[in-house]
Design a protein around this nucleic acid. Sequence first.
RNA 1: GGCCGGAUGGCGAAAUUGGCAGACGCACGGGACUUAAAAUCCCGUGGAGGGAAACCUCCGUGCGGGUUCGAUCCCCGCUCCGGCCACCA
Length: 955
Amino acid sequence: MPRYNPAQIEPKWQEYWARNKTFAAPQLPGAKKLYVLDMFPYPSGDGLHVGHPEGYTATDIICRFERMRGKSVMHPMGWDAFGLPAEQHAKKTGTPPRITTEKNIGTFRRQLQMLGFSYDWDREVATTDPDYFRWTQWIFLVLFDTWFDRELGRGRPISELPIPADVDASGGQAIRRYQDAHRLAYQSEAPVNWCPALGTVLSNEEVIGGLSERGSHPVVRIPLRQWMLRITAYADRLEQDLAELDWSDSIKTLQRNWIGRSTGAEVDFYIGHPDESPEGRPVAPAFKTWRNERAERGFAATPTSDAIRVFTTRPDTLFGATYMVIAPEHALVPRLTRPAQAAAVREYCERAARKSDLDRTELAKEKTGVFTGSFAVNPVTSRPIPIWIADYVLASYGTGAIMAVPAHDTRDFEFATAFELPIQPVVDPGDDAGVDRDAVLGGVAVFTGEGTSIHSGPYVSLSTADCKQQITDDLAKRGLARPAINYKLRDWLFSRQHFWGEPFPILHELDAAGKPTGLVRTVPPGELPVDLPELAVFETHGSPEPPLEHAPESWLYPVVDGRRYKRETNTMPQWAGSCWYYLRFLDPKNSRELVSRQIEHAWMPVDIYIGGAEHAVLHLLYARFWHKVLYDRGMVSTGEPFQKLVNQGMILGEMELTGYKQADGAWTSAAMVETDDDAQPKLKQTGEAVEAVRVGFDQVEKTGEAFVLKGHPTVRLDSRAYKMSKSRGNVVNPDNVVREYGADALRLYEMFMGPLEATKPWSMEGVNGVRGFLDRVWRMMTAERSERAELNPAVRDVEPTPEQNRVLHKTIHGVTQDLERMSFNTAIAKMMEFTNFYLKCDVRPKSAMQTLVLLLSPLAPHISEELWQLLGHQQTLAYEPWPAFDPAAVHEDEIEIPVQINGKLRARIRVPQGASPQVIEHHARNDERIAALLENQTIRKVVVVPGRMVNFVVG
RNA sequence: GGCCGGAUGGCGAAAUUGGCAGACGCACGGGACUUAAAAUCCCGUGGAGGGAAACCUCCGUGCGGGUUCGAUCCCCGCUCCGGCCACCA
């Protein structure tokens, strides 16, 4: 019996496509271009898992579909191949990372080719290839050569940076240092996230709750000289430009939250002491920065030691600011600390410095802090307020100092309560804010919402919004405040202490004694790439020392123009290569440029980008940032790289059944399972220990609706799907699926499971189900019981009957629409309906069969090509015109519409297509059943929606 | 704690976003073919009740309200599940 044999068909067509370069994209597209991009994979040693082909199949369907509709399609694939696992493998086995990486790429390439994706393999790139990272290094040089012009809101060449007169007068070194302080790539001594277990520094994004994202190891903060990228300069544009993108709102929200724009004001609090009069203190105009990068952003510089600058989103609550808090790392800590408090402050700050982020987070419940002994002056009340130090204020956000308004901020309230500081309510929540108004007004509850000002001098009875505005305006006139915007986004820590990454094209200048001067020179673009040296030692030493420190002297200390330099030994993070790979695909062999200007202009932007939601923040933000810099520098033609973005949902493992066992080993009975009348059964808290146990399918019985444990008919089992993981043993390997069911079945199943963006559980029985569909399609067109596949005698060169034609064109229309809106599961369902119908026909017009093959071909290309050939064609169907929909074919003279009485379906009537409401109502009233039901009823209203339904409202 | 998603048969899901709830598939039940099983084909399948039967009635999209002739869809208030961020002033 002909179950078709994918093991024969699929490799045959894969070879055909490769041999004929069927899917080679043109250098320059025709009139209608389409750039469809997958998030290229990290080629791990485990090979592909079934999550990869989900997105890849979706993009492949789009590409094949649009090629048939006449578009020039760019569909490349490559490898994000730098990364820690290959390096760790090297440490364990001594195998150089390049060898491991090449092997893994080989596996991934084989697996992807086995699935029949229509990539243009001639464009394959790997981030680890020197011909590739040469350009990654080149872009770093662009970043290094760019400063951000705040006036124009864009990046410009460093040569155009205006040099202040005093700097200019100080000469060459001063100018270089000034420029270095303004570059988009700069060095910083700021505290970094050092992970001893991984032996590397991590970006903020790679630290989750004080633990490393990879491996969950503790992370501590230590100061270290690092390369930073000034992504914060672009925060505003990265946020604003989201508006034009065709991305889901949830991803946009994710990015917005990450950028974390807050509007408010900066307010200066002059430092005074109760013994000193705050009056008559001169306004200090000269503001000195205490952190360069914040000054560069144009705000948040802390003024002289005469004042503490804070950022607040609620200037309206200024009258309620009863104390101030500065971060333990704040530059003013030493100056503000009075002798009496010195010991306590020193101890507190040292403890805070030792704490890892995890400790700080874990201890978040209990607020800690210490008084400095100093006071500041509240600029609106002129009263002195105490200045405290507490680690709930972050040095890295805003100005590293806050005004504390305990009545209207939860954290301040907790702190004030713990240290018995005064709580002064200044916002009346009103009666319907959903809070205990009396408690708020009495200063024993916190209210963070908006309301009406009270106890606020001249600002009483203003709304929160008006009050913000007026207080800010008034203080601005006195030079004590200004509107300000702050971002949660921090500058991007761009160096790693890894071997297996891109070396920086940077040389450190050495003085006569061989010590670094702090000045650098770049490796000229013509001398790129800076390749990795041969290196046998991959050990880390529990200190933040990069492996490249052990490189051969000749690599480490190059001599340029007779002068000895030391190479930068940090390497770039894994994100670097993936920030721009979409550009290189367009012109992968270009040895003179990153991408030819003409080619870039013709193909960009990426029209559709599909990948996992795990990259919603980091990769997409970084890539957009680099792209904007390249755009500012005139190297790319679009402001954004990815026009449309779709996140495929996660694929979970197969459903698992769980039972519950008591401590004594007995299974819990149904009596132990509490069922509240509506919800799921829950375990009753009886005080006895109960353990969840995975139940094998051989232990399961089904009675009626529920799964029960065999032999224990009262024990109900919970069914749930879990994330695929090695430890759980529920990982599905695509190789096995292809071997058993074929690539077409795997592709089809991945698309049939549900909407692309949904999280959904795997089911092998489901794969078997779609395989059954493919078998039916095969049988619909091929003869049974023949050695060689032959056309089924039912397939004849005849005109379709009107009914066959209607089904055919309904299918064309439905599938086309569904593919356009990426609703692949319903497109497949429509082709199943087609097949169910035509299998019942004794005569199957060849034209209809050919059309179905074309409709199916984007989803299941191998079987489609085979059937296409069987139907008498010599060439691939990849560029056959997409079937045209004929509306006339689906036209029906009569349509059936439902008739309701009081919204309940009571009958169906047949009316002529396009009948008027009057005619429809007439037909409805004349229907036997309806007439009977309407007898002796008062009809209050008749609603007729032409072509849809009729509703009689009676009673 | 904040933000963003979800919740529809035994299961995965449809319903072209206010108009016939459950398309399509899985699983399951019955039948055909077969010595038998597998495969394949045909029929049935949301729940409850009624009828000899074609059929009929009622209930049904997490829960409680609301808007509407009409709500899976819109509004208000909850419950549960998932994801992301978490002391960001």
